[in-house]
Structures are given as C-alpha cells and as structure tokens.
C-alpha cells in the first residue's frame, strides 16, 4: 500500500485494512509535528477547509480546525445557528454556496445519517464525515485505534469492550467496524434496551454484564449516557445505570492491571465512569484528544492529496 486514492472519508467501512494502517502510520509522523515549538508544516498551504457543523461540537470541531491549521490550510467555521438554514435553505444549497467560494474540503457533522454521502455525491470538494447521526464517526474510530496501537503495539487479537448506549452511538458503530477489520475482538455491553438488535451480524459479541467484560478486556471504551435517554424510557434512571454499568476503581480491580480505559467524551463523571477512573493511571482519555489532532491531520493530508 503506497498510494492513497480516496477523496472523501465517509465511514470506516469503506476503508481497507491497509488504508486504515496507512492513516495510523501517517498520524504517527504528524504527532511529532504537534510536539514542536513551531507547530506548523506547509503541506496544505493554500488549501481551504470548511467546518460545516449542523450539530454542536467543541472537541471534534476544534480538533479538525487545529489539524488543518497545523498543516497551513485556511479554515472557516460554519455553525448551524448563525447560518441561513434558519431562513429555510436546504443543507445541500448551504453546502453548494460554501463550495462556490472555492473550498477544497468540507468537514461535515449532521444529525441525519447519510448527509456526508449526499454531499460527496453532489459536490466537488473532499468531504470528511465528522459524525452523521448515530451511523458513523470515522475519525473518532481512527483516533481510538491509533491510541490503542500506540499503547499496545497492535490491534490484532486484542479484546475490546464498548460499554454504554450502543444503540445511539456512532462512536460504537465505527469502532466496531474498524476494530474488527483490524482483527480485534469487540464485545458491546449495556442495558438490553440500548443494544441494537442483530448487532452480532456486524461482528460484535454482546454482554449485559460489565464485570465480565472488565475481566476479559485489554481495552474498554466507555460511552456517555445522555440524560435524555431516561426521558425516552430506555433507562429506569441514570442512577440505576451508574450502579449496574458505571466503571469504578472497585470494579476495575477484577480486570487486568494493564486494562486501558478510553472515553470519546464528553464524559459524565459518576455515571458511566467514576472520577478516580477517569483521572487514573489506566485512563487514556486525554491522550485520545491529543492523538485526535494527529489523526485528523493525517486524514486531511491524505484526502486532499488523492488524485
């Protein structure tokens, strides 16, 4: 694998194992750039990257923006509230207008699954999916894989547990697709109301017992439990979830000493993760954020260079 040919990054499913490896290898080199005094290289000088976010986001948007800036691209942020969408324009028209200003890449997040695909079919720019509904969040999966590989040296043969609201989580779905492709064994875990039916068909094992998952895993990815889920009757109460599934220091004692804890953020301390676990030695949560910039630099560099 020596040539990158994809002009868009829409989901993890479309990437081959070799392509995932290429992103991770490229990201390793870009991580070094962020550790310099002068955190900037001229690779994307003269390119324009637009962050078109139809859903609120701080971490992902900032991460993409820093990534683009560290490659010397120009960046623009368009947030939904301040745009003409509220005046009745369709999302495709909004994107076409943005593109008419000669931009090179559009990083898009939208609550509806498939919006990045619609953009990719109808626009000339490179489209990067920064999260579409509960379907896909490819750069999060790539940065999680990067973080695991950096720590443990490999992905193949690892046992990874993903705990939380699997049903509504694009992070869970993308990680499941990516990690199984790279040869890891993924177990999803949560209350039965929040586990999608037939998820086994995507290659996941299912468990309803977080203690069992802790005992067997090399890595655990904990997902945020949104308070709205209680209103929507998926959960009796947030407190009950915390008692049944919340990962605490006490619970972690059953697992391997080297068990790594990850969380895509934002986290609810005291719900899916206790504060001492979040800040503990096994936690990689802030390293994920650091690595996110490097992985997004790699993605921007590769898709904007594809011919």
């Amino acid at each position: 694998m020596s040539e990158w040919t994809k002009r868009h990054l829409l989901d993890v499913e479309e990437l081959s194992k070799e392509e995932i490896e290429m992103v991770l290898d490229t990201a390793r080199s870009f991580k070094e750039v962020s550790s310099r005094d002068v955190k900037k290289v001229p690779a994307l000088r003269g390119k324009t990257v637009v962050m078109l976010f139809f859903e609120p986001s701080t971490r992902t948007r900032t991460s993409f923006e820093l990534a683009a800036k560290r490659l010397s691209a120009d960046t623009i942020n368009i947030a939904v509230n301040t745009s003409s969408l509220s005046k009745g324009e369709t999302i495709l028209d909004t994107a076409r207008n943005v593109e008419a200003m000669n931009v090179d890449a559009i990083v898009v997040r939208h609550a509806t699954p498939g919006v990045p695909q619609i953009f990719a079919h109808n626009l000339k720019s490179s489209i990067i999916n920064a999260g579409d509904g509960c379907r896909s969040h490819p750069t999060q999966a790539l940065l999680d894989m990067f973080t695991i590989k950096e720590k443990l040296g490999r992905l193949e043969g690892l046992k990874v547990g993903i705990v939380g609201d699997i049903l509504h989580s694009r992070v869970a779905r993308s990680n499941l697709m990516g990690l199984t492709k790279m040869g890891a064994e993924v177990t999803v875990c949560g209350p039965s109301t929040l586990i999608p039916v037939e998820i086994e068909k995507l290659g996941a094992k299912v468990s309803y017992d977080v203690d069992k998952v802790i005992k067997q895993s090399d890595v655990m990815i904990l997902l945020r439990i949104q308070k709205e889920r209680q209103k929507d009757h998926f959960l009796p109460s947030i407190r009950e979830y915390a008692i049944e599934f919340g990962v605490t220091t006490e619970r972690l004692k059953q697992g391997k000493k080297e068990l790594l804890i990850m969380h895509p953020g934002p986290m609810n301390r005291g719900v899916e993760i206790s504060s001492d676990v979040a800040d503990g030695e096994q936690s990689l949560i802030l390293e994920q954020v650091t690595n996110g910039v490097a992985v997004r630099m790699a993605v921007l560099y590769l898709v904007l260079g594809a011919k």
């Binding site: 870009f30 070094e32 560099y301």
Partner: peptide
Amino acid sequence: NLYRDDLTLVGSQPIIRET
C-alpha cells in the same frame, strides 16, 4: 515531504515518515 514545493503537483501524497 511536508515541505516539498511540488506537493500539489505530484500524484497522490507521498508517505510521511517520522522526523
């Protein structure tokens, strides 16, 4: 590679290795 003056001219992006 990140500093090349022909980055936008060559085919696809060269592979970036660590500095």
